[in-house]
């Protein structure tokens, strides 16, 4: 083996894709080059959460993943989140201004509700603290996710 680009197979938003990647390439760049620009670069250092995607249903920062690592994994990006419940709650509570942090927040919140549909305040904040938003002051984001928990949105469908 040498350091030439490699082919990887990965399931993204339900579709199996075959992609050529540099071995040093990070998955955030791979996704964005493939036209999936919903994951945003905010720091590319694992600090801001704006590139959050779901890897096998778990939120992961795409900038902290080698593309070679996702071989055969199941990836979901904001483009693949067909269920609109979280998005609608963010709309309802105005949980965004510039919108740059939003895709990462929505996927993180979605994963939170999948894993902890009745998350208590502490758990919710622990999860949501992974993302940085510079515009909103965070209250509306908390409100949106609290709304989903209070409405039991994910409990009935998924557990």
């Amino acid at each position: 083996m040498n350091h030439l680009p490699q082919t990887i197979q990965v399931q993204i938003n339900g579709q199996v894709k075959t992609l050529m990647v540099r071995q040093a390439e990070l998955f955030l760049d791979t996704l964005r080059n493939a036209g999936l620009t919903g994951a945003k670069p905010g720091c590319k250092n694992g600090d801001c959460g704006s590139c959050t995607i779901l890897v096998d249903h778990i939120p992961i920062q795409a900038c902290q993943l080698f593309s070679m690592e996702v071989m055969d994994k199941n990836i979901m990006t904001i483009e693949g989140l067909i269920d609109q419940t979280v998005q609608k709650a963010f709309e309802e509570k105005w949980a965004l201004q510039c919108g740059y942090c939003t895709p990462g927040y929505i996927l993180n919140a979605y994963a939170l509700l999948q894993h902890h549909p009745n998350a208590d305040e502490e758990t919710m904040k622990q999860w949501l603290d992974s993302n940085i938003c510079r515009c909103t002051g965070y209250q509306e984001i908390i409100d949106a996710v609290t709304l989903l928990i209070d409405r039991n949105e994910y409990h009935e469908h998924h557990s």
Binding site: H3, Q23, A24, D29, K44, M68
Partner: peptide, 11 residues
């Protein structure tokens, strides 16, 4: 972005 090249193994 990592600008240099490397080889990646998953033994």
């Amino acid at each position: 972005m990592i600008s240099f090249d490397l080889q990646y193994f998953q033994p």
